[in-house]
Amino acid sequence: MSIAVCRNLTKRYGHITALKNINLEIEGGKIIGLLGPNGSGKTTLIKLMSGILTPDEGDALICDEKIGVNTKKIVSYLPERTYLNDWMRAKDIINMFSDFYRDFKADTAYEMLKKLNINADDRLKTMSKGTREKVQLVLVMSREAKLYLLDEPIGGVDPAARDYILKTILNNYSEDASVIISTHLISDIEPVLDDVIFIKEGNMVLHSTVDEIREKNNKSVDALFREVFAC
């Protein structure tokens, strides 16, 4: 059983088609990079899989289930924005996640906050943007989900935290779960990836393993990306 399947997935915003007929299949135990320039449709694809958007055509299945309450139980989504309520404290949010998600491990979350020097009693309002983003990441990674959807997880974060985040993703690795990371910072993340998917103007132009790309093209994914998406 694949972790995720997209069939003819299409999404339009008025006249603009953000995603055109996306067909892809993702197996368990993979870390996949979703790569493409701004506005290419990466975020739209992730939002469709998390249930925030509904498709105009086609559908997506997570572990053979249509997107809905059952898939939300097994999908852990990290959006690019701050989605947490400002007035809450970090520990309040941990309690909330424990309340709603059966697969949420509060101990893991507290441990990770400690390692990142974040006080669980602090209110989100008082935290810097970078710290808030780290808190969100901690929450997402403390779930034992089948599919993790990370939209630009390392973008606004300092290099030390970036390393910690990548290490966390690797430590969380399990053979029956997969991680989709959407990012611009390809060279940082390339060693961690199994497969990459290139999205250009709503179309999927490449779906391959990192090894294959290096072997066939004698260059890194980062270099290939610059070629494919040259301005």
């Binding site: 390393d163 430590n171 690795y173 961690v192 990836l193 199994d194 990192v210 090894d211």
Partner: peptide, 17 residues
């Protein structure tokens, strides 16, 4: 494998291979 992959900061499947 997992720990080695984490140490090297690479994908566990890559390390396994």
């Amino acid at each position: 494998v997992r720990e080695l992959a984490s140490e090297a900061e690479v994908n566990p499947n890559t390390m396994q291979k």
